[in-house]
């Protein structure tokens, strides 16, 4: 494909970069990324991937926009309160960049539908707010060998890691099983600084762009921890666990399961 004059202008700052260039920009336009969650993380992730010209962005979420979301979920607005988050986000992303095809999926991923959703995408980005989805997405990505960029936030602290299944660690190498319901508070219970998902979401989007471009070093075998209060970034090494229940040598988890029981759904 050839760039139009408008595309040359829109992506000029990418094209100038030796690590991107016209070839890299074409890779971005051809890429298909799935974002799980259209909340605090999903909004900045989708916003920046749209700006970058990632050609196909799938986004899945079952929620509707509420006024309490707007302190951090920047793709939504006062005018879209009550609208499904995926529709609100699609509107915002496509207004930013008409080159992007946003596929809005209102619903919740579960063991029965996740394979069908993931199969059309090159990279998955987790911006979910709950453990059942987080583990389900990890396991599905391991089974389907899809690169997964995982992010999480609470209060003033966030984490990012990039999972290249069977090459580096997976989420269960890091935390083998979800914590018991109620042990880890949700953002709803514990609060979150509004800008925090912006920082972590931008890091997740950066990881995805690097994977698409094949440039730099992703956060493979590494967990990045950001503390907003002290403005510190810490990298923790996460080796692959040979006894990992899903990606280890003798996996005990060989099919997808839902962990919904007892977890707060929001």
């Amino acid at each position: 494909m050839e760039f139009t004059d408008l595309q040359v202008q829109r992506y000029s700052r990418h094209i100038i970069l030796p690590e991107v260039g016209g070839k890299g920009q074409k890779k971005l336009l051809a890429a298909k990324v799935l974002i799980v969650g259209a909340g605090g993380l999903g909004c900045p992730v989708g916003y920046y991937l749209s700006a970058a010209g990632v050609g196909t962005i799938g986004i899945v979420d079952d929620d509707v926009v509420e006024v309490s979301n707007l302190q951090r979920q920047i793709a939504h607005s006062t005018g879209t309160i009550g609208m499904p988050k995926v529709e609100s986000a699609k509107k915002t992303f496509e207004a930013l960049n008409p080159d992007v095809n946003v596929i809005a999926m209102k619903g919740r991923l579960n063991k029965d539908n996740i394979t069908d959703v993931l199969k059309d995408y090159d990279i998955v980005i987790d911006g979910s707010d709950n453990f059942p989805t987080r583990y389900l997405v990890n396991d599905a990505c391991v089974f389907m060998r899809k690169p997964l960029v995982s992010g999480a936030i609470l209060r003033f602290e966030g984490q990012v890691t990039t999972i290249i299944p069977h090459e580096g660690h997976c989420y269960r190498c890091l935390f083998e099983a979800p914590p018991p319901p109620g042990l880890v508070p949700s953002c709803q219970e514990a609060g979150v600084l509004g800008v925090l998902p912006g920082v972590i979401g931008a890091l997740e989007a950066t990881e995805a762009l690097k994977l698409i471009l094949g440039r730099g070093e992703p956060l493979k075998n590494t967990l990045l921890i950001y503390d907003a209060l002290t403005t510190s970034f810490r990298k923790v090494k996460v080796p692959r666990n040979p006894d990992c229940p899903v990606c280890g040598q003798n996996p005990t988890i060989t099919e997808l399961a839902d962990y919904d029981a007892g977890y707060c759904q929001r």
Binding site: F3, V8, Q9, S12, I15, I16, G21, G22, K23
Partner: peptide, 13 residues
């Protein structure tokens, strides 16, 4: 600028 260089770079690619 910068479209002068952008166009030249795309041609080189």
């Amino acid at each position: 600028c910068p479209y002068t260089f952008v166009k030249a770079k795309l041609a080189m690619e």
